[in-house]
């Protein structure tokens, strides 16, 4: 007779506490980044200087930060710089790559996975714990980013109403993009034996994806690459008017496919204990 193994909440709690300092640090930097961007944006003189500076730099940098949305007076477009600033994207990537590889391949390499799996925790449950922390952590970071914008609108006067509902939609959609990045890392951690391999593959995929998106925007003949890039969905044109349900479905599909595939391979393969 088969006995059902209870869900390992103790492991979930233990891992959450170990990740909390890293999550809090990344969250704090992202939060402060939004405040800093809004501090610059609410001052017209600073905005003009900043835009003049951007015009001096190669065009793809302006493209990466928002492209034609970056106009003096277009306050929402300027605030969005904080949502796609390279530092913010780097921090997201750090968390997305770091969490599943630390929890899955990291514990395997440390030898502690053998102990975890020798207790009452199935391989699938362990993978689910890592998935929950990765996806929930990524989504929560995006909400912290939105809270940074909300806090900035209370701190600074922009001379015009700030459409927070738009930013909320962007944040939720961005949460799905971040979750998709996390699910790619989960897939790598579930499939690959070593932590370095999993980190390397995930970073390579995300960097290529990012540059495919930049190049596709900058070079019209490569526009067909856009839908293949995760970052394309972060800036869905439909966001200005409502929820981009089609794009969100694509992102959800990527999250589900990568997470489930990683879980299936993780369950089936012998871990290098």
């Amino acid at each position: 007779m088969s006995h059902r193994v209870p869900f390992p909440f103790a492991l979930l709690r233990f891992w959450s506490r170990r990740l909390l300092p890293m999550w809090a640090f990344v969250g704090l930097v992202i939060f402060l980044m939004q405040i800093a961007v809004c501090a610059i944006v609410h001052d017209n003189a600073s905005v003009k200087n900043f835009l003049n500076f951007l015009d001096v730099l190669p065009a793809f940098i302006k493209t990466a930060l928002g492209g034609e949305m970056l106009q003096a007076g277009n306050v929402p477009g300027l605030i969005l710089i904080g949502y796609q600033h390279p530092l913010v994207l780097f921090l997201y990537m750090l968390f997305a790559v770091g969490v599943p590889t630390t929890l899955l391949t990291g514990e395997v390499q440390k030898g502690t996975m053998e102990l975890i799996l020798s207790r009452s925790a199935t391989k699938t449950q362990v993978y689910v714990c890592a998935s929950m922390l990765t996806l929930a952590g990524m989504f929560a970071l995006v909400l912290v980013m939105f809270l940074g914008t909300v806090a900035a609108t209370r701190l600074y006067d922009f001379g015009q109403p700030i459409p927070l509902d738009l930013f909320f939609r962007i944040a939720v959609n961005g949460g799905l993009v971040a979750g998709a990045a996390g699910s790619i890392a989960l897939l790598a951690a579930g499939v690959l034996a070593g932590r370095n391999g999993a980190v390397g593959v995930t970073v390579a995929v995300l960097v290529l994806d990012y540059f495919a998106w930049i190049v596709a925007q900058w070079w019209p003949s490569l526009g067909f690459l856009k839908p293949a890039a995760l970052f394309y969905y972060a800036r869905s044109p439909e966001l200005a008017h409502g929820w981009p349900l089609g794009d969100m479905s694509v992102l959800l599909l990527v999250i589900l496919a990568c997470t489930i595939l990683g879980g299936v391979v993780w369950q089936r393969r012998d871990l290098p204990l």
Partner: peptide
């Protein structure tokens, strides 16, 4: 009394294990 299935923690609640190379956090 229960067939062990890989990765399913079969009866682990009632089993004690000491690995050859014991490593903790």
């Amino acid at each position: 009394g229960e067939p062990v299935v890989s990765g399913r923690a079969t009866r682990h609640q009632r089993m004690g294990y000491l690995p050859g190379e014991f490593r903790l956090w």
